[in-house]
Protein backbone atom coordinates (compact mmCIF):
# COMPACT_ATOMS: atom_id res chain seq x y z
CA UNK A 1 0.00 0.00 0.00
CA UNK A 2 1.22 3.48 -0.65
CA UNK A 3 0.39 6.89 0.63
CA UNK A 4 1.49 9.54 -1.80
CA UNK A 5 1.04 12.38 0.66
CA UNK A 6 4.23 11.43 2.48
CA UNK A 7 6.61 13.60 0.56
CA UNK A 8 9.97 11.91 0.28
CA UNK A 9 11.66 15.30 -0.13
CA UNK A 10 13.89 16.03 2.79
CA UNK A 11 13.53 19.78 2.67
CA UNK A 12 12.12 22.17 0.13
CA UNK A 13 15.21 23.35 -1.68
CA UNK A 14 15.33 26.98 -2.66
CA UNK A 15 18.97 27.32 -3.64
CA UNK A 16 22.15 25.47 -2.86
CA UNK A 17 22.77 27.25 0.43
CA UNK A 18 19.48 27.95 2.14
CA UNK A 19 16.34 25.91 2.40
CA UNK A 20 12.86 26.48 3.72
CA UNK A 21 11.93 24.25 6.64
CA UNK A 22 8.67 22.58 5.70
CA UNK A 23 7.52 22.76 9.29
CA UNK A 24 8.34 26.30 10.49
CA UNK A 25 8.70 27.88 7.05
CA UNK A 26 11.91 29.52 8.24
CA UNK A 27 14.90 29.93 5.96
CA UNK A 28 17.66 27.74 7.32
CA UNK A 29 21.18 27.08 6.12
CA UNK A 30 21.37 23.57 4.70
CA UNK A 31 24.76 23.14 6.33
CA UNK A 32 23.26 23.99 9.72
CA UNK A 33 20.54 21.37 9.29
CA UNK A 34 23.02 18.74 8.25
CA UNK A 35 25.33 19.51 11.16
CA UNK A 36 22.30 19.26 13.44
CA UNK A 37 21.55 15.59 12.53
CA UNK A 38 19.04 16.76 9.91
CA UNK A 39 16.93 18.45 12.54
CA UNK A 40 15.78 22.04 11.94
CA UNK A 41 17.88 24.27 14.22
CA UNK A 42 15.03 26.71 14.75
CA UNK A 43 11.99 24.45 15.31
CA UNK A 44 13.48 21.01 16.05
CA UNK A 45 11.58 19.41 13.17
CA UNK A 46 13.08 16.00 12.39
CA UNK A 47 13.62 15.59 8.65
CA UNK A 48 13.59 12.06 7.28
CA UNK A 49 17.07 10.66 6.74
CA UNK A 50 18.43 7.79 4.68
CA UNK A 51 19.61 4.53 6.15
CA UNK A 52 23.35 5.12 5.70
CA UNK A 53 23.07 8.47 7.44
CA UNK A 54 21.13 6.84 10.29
CA UNK A 55 23.90 4.31 10.80
CA UNK A 56 26.49 7.10 10.71
CA UNK A 57 24.78 9.06 13.51
CA UNK A 58 23.81 6.04 15.62
CA UNK A 59 26.70 3.60 15.58
CA UNK A 60 30.14 4.07 17.15
CA UNK A 61 32.54 5.20 14.49
CA UNK A 62 34.09 2.37 12.53
CA UNK A 63 32.06 -0.33 14.31
CA UNK A 64 29.40 -0.96 11.66
CA UNK A 65 29.58 -4.34 10.00
CA UNK A 66 26.87 -4.58 7.39
CA UNK A 67 25.38 -8.05 6.95
CA UNK A 68 23.32 -9.80 4.31
CA UNK A 69 24.39 -7.39 1.58
CA UNK A 70 24.06 -10.00 -1.14
CA UNK A 71 20.30 -10.23 -1.02
CA UNK A 72 18.67 -8.48 -3.94
CA UNK A 73 15.05 -8.07 -4.99
CA UNK A 74 13.48 -9.88 -7.92
CA UNK A 75 10.13 -9.41 -9.64
CA UNK A 76 8.14 -12.53 -8.68
CA UNK A 77 4.81 -11.28 -10.04
CA UNK A 78 6.28 -9.79 -13.19
CA UNK A 79 4.43 -6.71 -12.04
CA UNK A 80 3.75 -4.18 -14.75
CA UNK A 81 1.86 -0.97 -14.30
CA UNK A 82 2.91 2.30 -15.90
CA UNK A 83 6.49 1.43 -15.16
CA UNK A 84 7.61 -2.11 -14.51
CA UNK A 85 8.58 -3.08 -10.97
CA UNK A 86 11.94 -4.33 -12.24
CA UNK A 87 12.72 -0.91 -13.74
CA UNK A 88 11.62 0.94 -10.64
CA UNK A 89 13.81 -1.29 -8.49
CA UNK A 90 16.81 -0.52 -10.68
CA UNK A 91 16.08 3.19 -10.47
CA UNK A 92 15.76 3.11 -6.68
CA UNK A 93 18.99 1.17 -6.34
CA UNK A 94 20.80 3.78 -8.43
CA UNK A 95 19.30 6.68 -6.49
CA UNK A 96 19.93 5.31 -3.00
CA UNK A 97 22.95 3.05 -3.39
CA UNK A 98 21.24 0.25 -1.50
CA UNK A 99 19.83 -3.07 -2.72
CA UNK A 100 16.36 -2.69 -1.22
CA UNK A 101 14.52 -0.76 1.50
CA UNK A 102 16.48 -2.00 4.52
CA UNK A 103 20.08 -2.27 5.60
CA UNK A 104 21.05 -4.71 8.34
CA UNK A 105 24.17 -5.35 10.32
CA UNK A 106 25.79 -5.20 13.69
CA UNK A 107 28.12 -2.90 15.51
CA UNK A 108 28.48 -0.90 18.67
CA UNK A 109 26.26 1.77 20.14
CA UNK A 110 27.97 3.48 23.08
CA UNK A 111 30.43 0.54 23.13
CA UNK A 112 27.55 -1.97 23.37
CA UNK A 113 27.09 -4.58 20.68
CA UNK A 114 23.76 -4.65 18.91
CA UNK A 115 22.10 -6.04 15.81
CA UNK A 116 20.61 -3.13 13.90
CA UNK A 117 18.28 -2.69 10.92
CA UNK A 118 17.21 0.55 9.30
CA UNK A 119 14.45 0.75 6.74
CA UNK A 120 14.92 3.42 4.11
CA UNK A 121 12.03 5.62 3.16
CA UNK A 122 13.73 6.73 -0.06
CA UNK A 123 13.52 3.19 -1.43
CA UNK A 124 9.90 2.71 -2.55
CA UNK A 125 8.73 4.52 0.57
CA UNK A 126 10.42 1.97 2.81
CA UNK A 127 7.92 -0.69 1.85
CA UNK A 128 8.44 -4.35 2.72
CA UNK A 129 8.79 -6.98 0.03
CA UNK A 130 10.71 -10.27 0.10
CA UNK A 131 14.11 -8.66 0.67
CA UNK A 132 13.07 -6.53 3.64
CA UNK A 133 11.28 -9.53 5.16
CA UNK A 134 14.21 -11.86 4.60
CA UNK A 135 16.84 -9.46 5.95
CA UNK A 136 14.83 -8.62 9.07
CA UNK A 137 14.30 -12.35 9.69
CA UNK A 138 18.00 -13.09 9.13
CA UNK A 139 18.97 -10.30 11.48
CA UNK A 140 16.58 -11.52 14.18
CA UNK A 141 18.07 -15.00 13.88
CA UNK A 142 21.55 -13.48 13.96
CA UNK A 143 20.68 -11.65 17.18
CA UNK A 144 19.50 -14.91 18.75
CA UNK A 145 22.58 -16.84 17.60
CA UNK A 146 24.89 -14.16 18.98
CA UNK A 147 22.94 -13.11 22.05
CA UNK A 148 22.62 -9.52 20.86
CA UNK A 149 19.95 -6.93 21.54
CA UNK A 150 18.02 -6.02 18.42
CA UNK A 151 17.26 -2.48 17.27
CA UNK A 152 15.09 -1.72 14.25
CA UNK A 153 14.53 1.78 12.93
CA UNK A 154 11.26 1.69 11.00
CA UNK A 155 10.12 4.24 8.52
CA UNK A 156 7.70 3.07 5.89
CA UNK A 157 4.89 4.93 4.21
CA UNK A 158 4.22 1.94 2.07
CA UNK A 159 3.82 -0.95 4.49
CA UNK A 160 3.71 -4.21 2.58
CA UNK A 161 4.96 -3.61 -0.97
CA UNK A 162 2.10 -3.89 -3.45
CA UNK A 163 4.36 -4.88 -6.33
CA UNK A 164 5.10 -8.26 -4.73
CA UNK A 165 1.45 -8.87 -3.88
CA UNK A 166 0.55 -11.35 -1.21
CA UNK A 167 4.20 -12.42 -0.96
CA UNK A 168 4.81 -9.03 0.69
CA UNK A 169 1.90 -9.62 3.03
CA UNK A 170 3.50 -12.87 4.14
CA UNK A 171 6.68 -11.01 5.08
CA UNK A 172 4.65 -9.62 7.99
CA UNK A 173 4.18 -13.19 9.15
CA UNK A 174 7.80 -14.09 8.54
CA UNK A 175 9.29 -11.13 10.42
CA UNK A 176 6.86 -11.54 13.32
CA UNK A 177 7.68 -15.24 13.57
CA UNK A 178 11.40 -14.43 13.61
CA UNK A 179 10.82 -11.84 16.32
CA UNK A 180 9.07 -14.48 18.38
CA UNK A 181 12.43 -16.27 18.50
CA UNK A 182 14.08 -13.10 19.81
CA UNK A 183 11.30 -12.76 22.36
CA UNK A 184 11.65 -16.37 23.52
CA UNK A 185 15.44 -16.07 23.70
CA UNK A 186 14.97 -13.35 26.29
CA UNK A 187 16.68 -10.72 24.20
CA UNK A 188 15.75 -7.07 24.10
CA UNK A 189 14.15 -5.69 20.96
CA UNK A 190 13.86 -1.92 20.69
CA UNK A 191 11.68 -0.59 17.89
CA UNK A 192 12.30 2.99 16.85
CA UNK A 193 9.53 4.70 14.92
CA UNK A 194 10.57 7.32 12.41
CA UNK A 195 8.27 9.26 10.14
CA UNK A 196 6.21 7.65 8.64
CA UNK A 197 5.55 4.05 9.75
CA UNK A 198 2.36 2.54 8.34
CA UNK A 199 0.53 -0.53 7.08
CA UNK A 200 2.23 -3.88 6.99
CA UNK A 201 5.39 -2.57 8.65
CA UNK A 202 3.52 -1.11 11.62
CA UNK A 203 1.32 -4.22 11.79
CA UNK A 204 4.36 -6.46 12.11
CA UNK A 205 7.89 -5.78 13.35
CA UNK A 206 7.57 -2.05 14.10
CA UNK A 207 5.03 -2.48 16.90
CA UNK A 208 6.50 -5.66 18.39
CA UNK A 209 9.30 -3.96 20.30
CA UNK A 210 9.73 -4.66 24.01
CA UNK A 211 10.25 -0.93 24.05
CA UNK A 212 8.85 1.35 21.36
CA UNK A 213 10.53 4.71 20.91
CA UNK A 214 9.43 7.38 18.47
CA UNK A 215 11.16 10.43 17.09
CA UNK A 216 9.22 13.62 17.79
CA UNK A 217 6.13 13.95 15.59
CA UNK A 218 6.90 10.72 13.70
CA UNK A 219 3.62 9.37 12.38
CA UNK A 220 2.66 5.76 12.91
CA UNK A 221 -0.56 3.91 12.26
CA UNK A 222 -2.20 1.00 10.49
CA UNK A 223 -4.29 2.96 8.00
CA UNK A 224 -2.96 6.18 6.51
CA UNK A 225 -4.75 9.45 7.35
CA UNK A 226 -5.92 10.09 3.81
CA UNK A 227 -7.55 6.68 3.52
CA UNK A 228 -9.31 7.15 6.86
CA UNK A 229 -10.49 10.59 5.82
CA UNK A 230 -11.78 9.40 2.46
CA UNK A 231 -13.45 6.18 3.54
CA UNK A 232 -14.86 7.42 6.84
CA UNK A 233 -15.62 11.00 5.73
CA UNK A 234 -14.41 12.38 9.02
CA UNK A 235 -12.08 15.13 10.17
CA UNK A 236 -8.99 13.88 11.89
CA UNK A 237 -8.08 15.16 15.35
CA UNK A 238 -5.03 17.46 15.53
CA UNK A 239 -1.73 15.62 15.64
CA UNK A 240 -3.46 12.38 14.69
CA UNK A 241 -1.04 9.43 14.56
CA UNK A 242 1.94 11.60 15.47
CA UNK A 243 4.33 10.34 18.15
CA UNK A 244 2.78 12.50 20.88
CA UNK A 245 -0.74 11.36 19.97
CA UNK A 246 0.39 7.74 19.91
CA UNK A 247 2.13 8.07 23.26
CA UNK A 248 -1.03 9.59 24.75
CA UNK A 249 -2.98 6.63 23.38
CA UNK A 250 -0.58 4.08 24.81
CA UNK A 251 0.93 3.03 21.48
CA UNK A 252 4.44 4.38 22.05
CA UNK A 253 6.60 4.24 25.19
CA UNK A 254 8.74 7.30 24.82
CA UNK A 255 9.51 10.13 22.46
CA UNK A 256 13.22 10.68 22.02
CA UNK A 257 15.04 13.44 20.15
CA UNK A 258 17.29 12.13 17.40
CA UNK A 259 20.42 13.24 19.19
CA UNK A 260 19.46 11.28 22.33
CA UNK A 261 18.62 7.98 20.66
CA UNK A 262 22.07 6.36 21.07
CA UNK A 263 22.29 7.26 24.76
CA UNK A 264 18.72 6.07 25.37
CA UNK A 265 19.56 2.79 23.68
CA UNK A 266 22.59 2.36 25.93
CA UNK A 267 20.37 2.90 28.97
CA UNK A 268 17.90 0.32 27.72
CA UNK A 269 20.68 -2.17 26.97
CA UNK A 270 21.84 -1.71 30.58
CA UNK A 271 18.40 -2.09 32.15
CA UNK A 272 17.30 -5.03 30.05
CA UNK A 273 20.27 -7.34 29.80
CA UNK A 274 19.59 -10.86 28.55
CA UNK A 275 19.21 -13.48 31.22
CA UNK A 276 21.57 -16.35 30.60
CA UNK A 277 19.41 -19.24 29.58
CA UNK A 278 21.19 -22.47 30.39
CA UNK A 279 20.67 -25.71 28.57
CA UNK A 280 20.04 -23.98 25.25
Amino acid sequence: MAFSFFSPKRHVRTDGVFTKCRNCDGMVRIKDIEENLDVCPSCDFHFPIGSQRRIEITMDEGSWNELFTDIYPTDPLNFNAKKSYADRLKRCQQDTGIADAVITGCGKIGSKNAAVAVTDFRFMMGSMGSVVGEKIALLAEHAVANNLPLVIFSGSGGGARMDEGVISLMQMAKTSAALSKVHKAGLLYVSIITDPTYGGVSASFATLGDVIIAEPRARMGFTGPRVIQQTMKVDLPPGFQEAEFNRDHGQVDRIVHRRDIPSTLVQLFEFFRPRRIYGK
Binding site: S176, A203, S204, A206, T207, G221, F222, I228, M232
Partner: peptide
Protein backbone atom coordinates in the same frame (compact mmCIF):
# COMPACT_ATOMS: atom_id res chain seq x y z
CA UNK B 1 -9.81 1.81 8.93
CA UNK B 2 -11.17 4.23 11.54
CA UNK B 3 -9.86 6.74 14.06
CA UNK B 4 -10.95 4.67 17.07
CA UNK B 5 -9.28 1.56 15.70
CA UNK B 6 -6.04 3.53 15.32
CA UNK B 7 -6.29 4.96 18.83
CA UNK B 8 -6.65 1.50 20.29
CA UNK B 9 -3.73 0.06 18.35
CA UNK B 10 -4.99 -1.73 15.24
CA UNK B 11 -1.41 -2.26 14.07
CA UNK B 12 -0.09 -3.75 17.29
CA UNK B 13 -3.18 -5.93 17.75
CA UNK B 14 -2.56 -7.57 14.37
CA UNK B 15 1.23 -7.73 14.84
CA UNK B 16 0.85 -9.42 18.22
CA UNK B 17 -1.38 -12.09 16.69
CA UNK B 18 1.18 -12.76 13.97
CA UNK B 19 3.93 -13.26 16.51
CA UNK B 20 1.86 -15.32 18.94
Amino acid sequence: PGIDAEERGQAVAIATNLRE
